[in-house]
C-alpha cells in the first residue's frame, strides 16, 4: 500500500470511530432523554424549542465538538513537542506549557476578560503568551542545546509548579467567590460553549494544526539530530520556531476554552505509535482525530458517571495518563533514564 493510501485508510477508520463515539455521546447524559427523543431532535421532528431539541442540539452537540477539537489539538501538540524536543515523554502538561497557558488565562480573567467571543479571543492570546513564556522558561532552565530526557522533564515539572503557585497567588488576590469555578477549570473542564466561541476555538486549533502538519516530514528528519537534518536540507531554526509556535497555539487554545487538560498529548500519540509506527506524517493527522476520540470518550464518562453532577474531564485523563506515563517510563524508555 502506498503511504498516501495508508494515510487515507487510517484517517478513514479513525473518522468512523470518532463518528461512532460522537453518536454514542449524543445519547448519553443526565437529562435522561430516550434514544427516540434524541433521534427525533436530530431529525428535526421535535420543535426547536422542545427540551429534546435544546438538550441534544444546543447542549450535547457543541460539547461533543469542543471535546473532539480539544482532544485533537492536545494530541497534535504532544506529537509536535515530542518531535521538537526529541523526547518521547514531552507533552504540554508535563512540560509545564499548559500551566503557563493557564496562568495567562487567569491573568486575562483578572484584568476583566471573560465573556463573549472577544473575551475568548483575548483569553486565547493571554494563554498563548503564557504558553510561550513557560516553554521558553523550560528551555532556559534545562539549558540550551541538546537536552537530555531527564533534564527536560525536570525543567518542565519545575516550571509547571512555578506557574501553579503563581495561579494560586493571583486567585487569592482576586476574589474568593471565583475559586469554585477556577478550581474546576484548572482540572480541565469541557463545557458547552456558544457557537461564535466554538468557531474561534476551531479557527485557532486549525491554525495550530496548519503550522505543524505541513512539516511532518521534516519532523521525521529531526529525529536524526539537528545537524544531520540541516545537512539534509531542513531549515532547522525556522522549523523549530514554527513547530514551537504551532504546539503553543494548540495548547493555548485548549487551555483558554477548556482548561489545562493533562496527559492527552502523551496517551494518544503513544497509542498511535504502537499501531502506526513512528512516521509523523501519519501521526500528526491521526493524532488530531484520535485525540478527539479519546477526549470525547473521557468526557462522556465524566459527565455521566456521577449524574446529575459532573466530573472534570481532566480528572479522567489524569487517572488514565499518570499510570500510562509510569508504564512508558518503566518499559519502553527505561534506557533513557
Amino acid at each position: 500500500m502506498s503511504p498516501g493510501a495508508r494515510l487515507v485508510a487510517v484517517l478513514g477508520v479513525l473518522a468512523l470511530v470518532l463518528l461512532l463515539v460522537g453518536a454514542a455521546a449524543l445519547f448519553v447524559g443526565s437529562a435522561a432523554l430516550s434514544p427516540g427523543a434524541v433521534l427525533a431532535a436530530l431529525t428535526g421532528r421535535t420543535g426547536a424549542r422542545s427540551i429534546e431539541s435544546v438538550v441534544t442540539l444546543s447542549i450535547r452537540l457543541p460539547r461533543i465538538a469542543v471535546a473532539a477539537l480539544a482532544g485533537g489539538a492536545l494530541a497534535v501538540a504532544g506529537v509536535a513537542f515530542q518531535a521538537l524536543t526529541r523526547n518521547p515523554l514531552a507533552e504540554p502538561s508535563v512540560l509545564g506549557v499548559s500551566g503557563g497557558a493557564a496562568f495567562g488565562v487567569v491573568i486575562g480573567q483578572s484584568v476583566g476578560l471573560g465573556f463573549g467571543v472577544l473575551g475568548a479571543a483575548g483569553l486565547t492570546a493571554f494563554a498563548f503568551a503564557g504558553a510561550v513564556v513557560a516553554a521558553g522558561a523550560v528551555y532556559l532552565v534545562a539549558g540550551a542545546g541538546r537536552l537530555s530526557v531527564q533534564t527536560l522533564l525536570l525543567a518542565g515539572v519545575i516550571v509547571g509548579l512555578f506557574f501553579a503557585s503563581a495561579i494560586t497567588v493571583v486567585i487569592s488576590f482576586v476574589d474568593v467567590n471565583r475559586l469554585g469555578g477556577v478550581i474546576h477549570w484548572l482540572l480541565g473542564n469541557l463545557a458547552t460553549i456558544p457557537p461564535a466561541s466554538l468557531g474561534l476555538f476551531a479557527l485557532t486549533a486549525a491554525a495550530g494544526l496548519a503550522l505543524v502538519l505541513p512539516h511532518a516530514r521534516e519532523l521525521n528528519l529531526l529525529a536524526l539530530g539537528e545537524e544531520a537534518a540541516q545537512q539534509l536540507g531542513v531549515d532547522a531554526e525556522r522549523l523549530k520556531l514554527q513547530i514551537f509556535a504551532g504546539a503553543a497555539l494548540l495548547t493555548a487554545s485548549v487551555v483558554a476554552f477548556a482548561g489545562p487538560i493533562g496527559f492527552v498529548g502523551l496517551i494518544v500519540p503513544h497509542a498511535l505509535r504502537l499501531l502506526l509506527g513512528p512516521d509523523n506524517r501519519l501521526l500528526v493527522p491521526a493524532a488530531f482525530v484520535g485525540g478527539g476520540i479519546f477526549l470525547l470518550a473521557a468526557d462522556t464518562v465524566a459527565r455521566s458517571i456521577v449524574a446529575p453532577a459532573e466530573l472534570s474531564v481532566g480528572v479522567i485523563t489524569s487517572f488514565c495518563g499518570a499510570p500510562f506515563f509510569v508504564w512508558l517510563l518503566r518499559t519502553r524508555y527505561r534506557a533513557l533514564l
Binding site: 518521547p88 529525529a223 545537512q231 505509535r273 509506527g277 524508555y333 534506557a335 533513557l336
Partner: peptide
C-alpha cells in the same frame, strides 16, 4: 554527509 551513525532510540 555520512554521520557516524544515528542517535540512540532512532525509531525508523
Amino acid at each position: 554527509v555520512v554521520p557516524q551513525g544515528v542517535p540512540p532510540q532512532f525509531p525508523f
